[in-house]
Every structure is written in structure tokens, then in C-alpha cells.
Amino acid sequence: MAEGLGLKGPRGWAFRDVSFHAGAGALVALEGPSGTGRTCLLLALTGRMKTQEGHAEVGGLRLPRKMAAVRRIAGLGQVPGVSELDPSLTVAEHLRERALLQRRFDGSVRALLRRPGTRAAETRARIAEALAAAGLDLAALPKGERTSVRDLERLEALRLSIALALMGRPRLIGVDDTDLKLSDADRAEAWALLRAVAAAGTTVLAVCSEAPADALRITTVGTAAATEPAAAEEPTEPGTAAKPAAATEPAAAEEPTEPGTATEPAAADGPAAATEDDITEEGAADALAETRRA
């Protein structure tokens, strides 16, 4: 749920007055052209960027007050500059690294005290569960699990990023550039995958240029953001149009629980010519750039 949500970058608002309601297991498409604040909205709703107006609630946790707690229940798939796959690593190396991070940061003390053989079996089971949910068949890859990320097709890389996010068994997952550089057939497969993840109970936020008809569509177009209900299900609260504005104060964020997931406050003011009635592409770009540098 979001109500009057707004985030500003050094040179303007990335988005403002975003309101919608989505239940558990919903497929939410953040739709619009590049530069209209879609990624900033995705990062704000997953606890990675701090908003300045309104509030949101994820799993009963209120944003922006509970950003760290939201990050623990919200996973990120691919987000360029924030949670990218390393092209030099293999699929197996990515999976092992994520499993180690999961055990280190999210595991209980009791789990850490289990016998090594038991922990290894649990890790293998969790990896297999995530790969199955993401529809990634390692045997079908050119070199199996030893395939480098640089050799993956775009859809395969998307599946891997979702599998990595699902290893934390999140209640919410965010994916950027869902339909970027995909053929029509691959785009259909990508949305089918996200529908399956949502149907299993995990709420999905997907940034895209064109949303499917059955998704709850949050549309950002230049100076406005509007909510359109999915064809099959009406949201319990209506969406509202975004109110354009600009500001000179930067977005800020808390310390991340994982590297590269949060913003640091920028000190520079916006240009004097900026007005309070402009949502700028620069505002979204600057806010996102702060996150990527953090």
C-alpha cells in the first residue's frame, strides 16, 4: 500500500503523490518511459530509497520509518547499478555466493550451529527450490552451472536474478527493466514467470515499458503517475495522479543490509530556475545515481 508517496532528487521530484493498494501475491507493473522515476519508485517500495512525502506499508511495516525491516523481507532481482549480476562469475558461483550471504546475514544462530552436512543439504535444497520457482534449468545452459553470466541469454539472466532474490524467501520482490531487449516470445515468458511467482504468494513489483493487462499498473508518464487496476482484479483503494513538483533537497536513505542498496544524502541544491511544479527526469536520474554510488 502506498499513499501520497513522493521522492525528490537533487534537481527535482523523481515521483510524487503515488497511491495504490496491492494485496499479497499481487503483480504490480511500474509502467512508463525510461527516466520517469520507475526505478526510484521500485527502490523506495523495497526499502532502498527514502521518500520525503507520504508513506507506504509493506508486510505491515511502514515506510520510510521501517526501511531496514522492509529490506529484510523484500528481495531485488536485476536492478542496473544496484543489484547487477557479475558477468565474470558463473551461475554456480552466483548461487553459492548468495547462499553464503543468506546464511551470514539472515540465518538464525541455531542454523549456524547445525552440523556442516546438514547446512550443506539445506543450502542445496534452497537453491533447488529457487531455481525451480524461477524456471531456470541448469542442464539446459551451454556449460551447465559453470556457464558464465556473460554467456546467458537475456531471459536466462532474468531467471537467474529472480532465483537469487527468491533464495531469501521474500514476501516482496522487485525487478527492473523486465521487458528490456526481449522478443515478444521472451517477454511473454518473463511475464508468465512473474505471474507464477506472484501466484505462489510473493508480491511482485516489475518495472516495464508496457504492462500486461492483468497487472495492477502504476503508470509514470513524464510529469504524472497514475494507477490503473488489473483487468481481473480491482484495487481496494483507487490510484491517484501524481502532482508535479520540483525541489532542491536530495533523497536520503538508511544504511543498507546488503552492499549497494541504499542512497546517501547529496548536499547540492537544485538549480535556481527549478520550480515547485516540475517533476524532472534529472530528479529521478540524480536520485538513482546517488543509490548507485552508495
Rank of each mutant, 00 (worst) to 15 (best):
E93D: 10
L112E: 09
V79P: 02
G117R: 10
R115K: 13
A121T: 14
R104Q: 12
F105Y: 14
P80G: 01
D106P: 04
G117I: 09
Q102C: 13
H94P: 03
L76V: 02
L76H: 04
Q78M: 09
R124L: 10
A111R: 12
V79L: 03
R96T: 14
R110M: 09
R119T: 12
R98I: 07
A120P: 08
G81L: 01
L100C: 09
L89G: 01
R104C: 08
G75R: 02
L85Q: 00
R124I: 04
L100W: 13
G107E: 07
S108F: 00
T90E: 04
R98V: 14
L95M: 06
A99V: 09
E84W: 08
D106V: 07
R104P: 07
P80Q: 02
G81N: 02
T118Q: 15
H94W: 06
V91F: 02
V82G: 01
E97N: 13
E84K: 05
S88P: 06
R114M: 08
V82K: 01
Q102S: 15
R104Y: 10
A99N: 08
P87A: 06
V79S: 02
S108W: 01
G81T: 02
R103W: 15
R103D: 15
S108R: 06
R96E: 14
H94K: 02
R119G: 13
A99R: 10
L112W: 15
G77R: 01
P116M: 08
T118M: 10
G107I: 06
L89E: 03
R103A: 15
A74D: 01
E97S: 12
H94R: 04
L101F: 14
R124P: 04
D106L: 14
G81K: 00
L85D: 01
E122Q: 14
T118V: 14
E122P: 05
V82M: 03
L113D: 07
G107F: 08
A120E: 15
A92T: 04
R96F: 09
E84G: 09
L89K: 00
A92I: 04
V91L: 00
G81R: 02
L100Q: 14
A111Q: 14
Q78T: 05
R115M: 11
R124H: 12
G81Q: 03
R110Q: 10
G77M: 02
L112N: 12
A99W: 06
D86Q: 07
A120I: 07
L100G: 11
